[in-house]
Design a protein around this nucleic acid. Structure first.
Lengths: 233, 233
DNA sequence: CGCATTGTTGACAAAGTTCAATTTGCGTGG
DNA sequence: CCACGCAAATTGAACTTTGTCAACAATGCG
């Protein structure tokens, strides 16, 4: 079996930080390498948390469904990062959010019992998990504040800013993002209509350039400044 | 010094769950008992996370300040619960949210180094911390969903519902809450004006009874049902 | 009793959403 | 290589919800 091996992560996993290569070998050896197709849902909010994952290749993201049937996009997951944490924690038996593969994904998957065993053997994993948990918490604090104290344009600008750093492809004349208006809207919690109008306005101001399923942000910082200062326009 | 002792918690602390009484003695012996006056701020968002706390008596709550100067109320903290988790976790050196005493509070306080040491000696503490972290996360997921998919009346009803269970004093004819309209508004993320209007409406429908600094909810469930179903009125 | 805090009410404004009608861009298969 | 068809994006106009502000009323503490 083509095992991705330790090296494929470049040692860049916060989850495995501080562990010896031998220990990492042991930990990874206990996992099943799995593959997920683009678009496939990996964990489903509310379903039994039976597996814990480490993404080695591809791109995934967390999302939620609202009671009124809309979809909300949360954090992105990059190689080296773990997800499905509910399976790692002692009590919660259900995933709290859903996860989907945005590109084809390669992961290590541990089942619940295995990963809990590993946590007992290597408490450093617990440490690291706690650290990751606090990153999530910080993300949510930020998101919460943004949601209740920023306007639609400011939220959208913030989203573009974040995505530029996380997913942006640097091209001549700025940073290019492969996202649809709908994705942006679902991340910023606005409607696609509002997103379209705002992007149009910013395009007219020369801050961005729109294409179908793609946005070119000339300068993320400038855009954010613009939105945070300018009351209108 | 009047040390509260293990018993004052009734063994009801999730943080200390699964540890032997002897171990708990050790852990508590490493803490300083402290007292905080009603209204005093215990941790401040953004400031150095030097201490980790276990509340033994009184009532506290988390809050945040928005960039535009408003105050947002988050979770309540009851005896047996811990707060100031940033001091417990490896990396974040700053508190992510603020904490204030709503009533006079008695706490155990560990300084950062001490509690990190204890975590190394008793990995079960890490386990428990992780469990608590996932409770926080779940709270935030719920709050987030509520915030983006519920109307102002629904959010206020939800807040009243939650508070009824967490802080409610059972009296004849319902559950009584000691909260101001402003507190309710800051929890539900609406303005005090909207809160006043909604409560007035619900009083007229016989769902609640208002007093200065106090609300009597006749039936939390009924109120929530009402708000979630009724589109208007 | 007086005063500060808390709550109320109305008129109005603003920000976003909704919906329907179109248009645009892009990959595919003939 | 072109035309078809679908998904994505656009635009305007009406509408809803909630916030804003100012004036005022009530509550209860000292």
């Amino acid at each position: 079996m083509a095992n991705p091996g330790v090296d494929s992560l470049d040692g860049k996993s916060l989850f495995l930080e501080g562990l010896q290569p031998v220990q990492i070998e042991t930990i990874l050896a206990a996992a099943k390498p799995l593959h997920f197709r683009e678009q496939s849902v990996i964990t489903r909010e509310g379903s039994q948390a039976n597996q814990f994952f480490l993404l080695t290749k591809g791109r995934a993201r967390y999302f939620l469904n609202t009671p009124d049937g809309r979809k909300v996009l949360l954090m992105w997951i990059s190689p080296g990062e773990v997800f499905g944490g509910a399976a790692f924690s002692g009590r919660p038996w259900h995933y709290m959010v859903s996860t989907e593969a945005v590109q084809d994904c390669t992961v290590y998957a541990w089942d619940r019992a295995t990963v809990r065993n590993l946590a007992r053997r290597f408490p450093r994993l617990l440490e690291n998990a706690l650290l990751i948990a606090s990153e999530y918490f910080q993300w949510y604090v930020d998101t919460h504040i943004t949601l209740i104290s920023r306007s639609a344009p400011q939220r959208l600008a913030q989203v573009l800013f974040h995505l530029s750093h996380r997913l942006g492809r640097r091209v001549t004349g700025g940073v290019e993002l492969e996202v649809t208006n709908e994705d942006l809207a679902n991340t910023a919690n606005i409607t696609p209509f509002t997103a379209s109008r705002l992007l149009g306005r910013w395009q007219r101001s020369g801050l961005v350039r729109k294409h179908r399923g793609r946005v070119l942000v000339h300068s993320p910082d400038q855009l954010l400044d613009h939105a945070l200062s300018a009351s209108s326009v």
